[in-house]
Amino acid sequence: MRSEETKLIVSSSPHIYEKEDVSYAMKQVVFSLIPAVIVGTYLFGIYSLIIVLISILSAVFWEGISLIIRKKPLYILGDYSAIVTGLLLALTLPPNVPFWIPVVGTAVAIILAKQVFGGLGENFLNPALVGRAFLLSSWPQIMTSWIEPKKGIFWASNVTTATPLAIEKLKLSGYSLPNYWDLLIGNRAGCIGETSVILLLLGGLWLIYKKIVDWRIPFSYILTVFMFSLIVGKDPIFQILSGGLFLGAFFMATDWVTTPLTSQGRVIFGIGAGLFTIVIRFWGSYPEGVTYGILVMNALTPLIDKFIKPRKFGEVKK
C-alpha cells in the first residue's frame, strides 16, 4: 500500500462543501418566479409568455457572445445568471411591447451592465434593472403603454389602460382604482410579472426559506415604503401593493452581487431603496420608483460595505 500503487489526492482543508452552489441558487430564483410568469400569461395573453421566452433566449445569446469575445469558457453559462437576468427583465416589461424590446434590453443588461465589468460578480448595478432603465428612457412611450388584464387563454389583450399608480398619481379621469383584493391577487394593469403580489410573496418566501434571500432586504424595503406613505398621508396599503414593489423587493433588491455583504448593510440598503422609491413616486415625474430606487442603492453599496463591518470576535474596544 505505498503511494506508487495508490495515488491519493491531497488538498488543504476543508474537504467538504455545501451542495448548494451559485447555479442551484439561480435555478431556485427561476423556479420561484414561475407562478408570476403563469399569472402574467393568464392575465395578459400568450404574447407575454413569448416576450418572456425571447428575453431569456436573447440574454443567454448575449452572454454567450460576450464570453466568446472575452475568451472565457462557455460553461459559465451554466451558472444560470443570464437566464435569471432575462427572466427578470421580461417581468418588468409592459405586456404588449414589440418583440425587439427585450432583445435590446437584455443586450444592455448583459453586455453593458454585466460583461464589460467582468461578468457575474463584478457588476455593481443590477443588470435587469439597468436594461429596464435604458428602455424606459429610450422608448418611454412603449414602456408606459398598459393593457387591461383579460384572463384566460388568448393571444394578447388590446384594451389600453393605465396602471393603478399612474391613475392615483396623475388623478386620471375615467379610470377606477382596483381594490386591495385585486391588487393582492394581481387583477390590474402593469408589467408582465409585477401584478400578483401574493404569488411574488410566495416565491420570495420560498427563497428566504432556502436561505438564498436575506429577509432583511424585502422586509426593511416594504416596511419603509409603508411607514413613509403613512407619514406623508398616502394610503400605505395601496402603496405597497401597487407598482413593482414586491417584484423589486424580493427579486431585484436581493440580488447577491449588487447588495451589501453584511446583514446590517442590507437593512440600510432596504431602507434606502424604500426612501428613494417613495420620493420618486410622490415627487418625481415617474409614477413608479422601484427601478431607480434599487439602482441608486446598488451604486451606494460599495460605500455601505466600506463603513458597515460585522463586529469582530474578541474585538478590543479602543
Partner: peptide, 14 residues
C-alpha cells in the same frame, strides 16, 4: 470544483 467569481452573497460573512 472550478471556482467562479465571488457573487457577494455574504454567506461567508454570516
Amino acid at each position: 470544483y472550478e471556482p467562479i467569481e465571488c457573487v457577494r452573497c455574504g454567506k461567508c460573512v454570516d
